[in-house]
Amino acid sequence: MPIEFDDEGYLRDLSDWSPEMAIDIATAEGISLTDAHLEIITVVREFYQTYELSPAMRPLVKAVSLKLGKDKGKSIYLMKLFPGSPAKIVAKIAGLPKPDNCI
């Protein structure tokens, strides 16, 4: 079974996700994953498990701040790791749906 993505490159079936696949999706986005990226991806996957929602930017910052500390819970830190629109890009790499209500 080939793994399916939607038109914007988000994984259709969340259970298809694996850390190896995250590397592939990230590469396609021009990002080479480091541990710093991975810990954010873990936070976002936990967020999704708890709330059944992909976080928009504001709750993403809050969740990272709660889990990894205030230094990392900042927009600028996330922008550096995931340039452009961090909430959307993290969700894509984490194999989650595109966040709703995202500017």
Binding site: T50, Y51, R58, K62, A63
Partner: peptide
């Protein structure tokens, strides 16, 4: 269906 309670519990994360 998605769990409504889960979405509710996200409210504090959105302040």
């Amino acid at each position: 269906m998605k769990k409504h309670e889960a979405m509710l519990s996200a409210l504090p994360m959105y302040d």
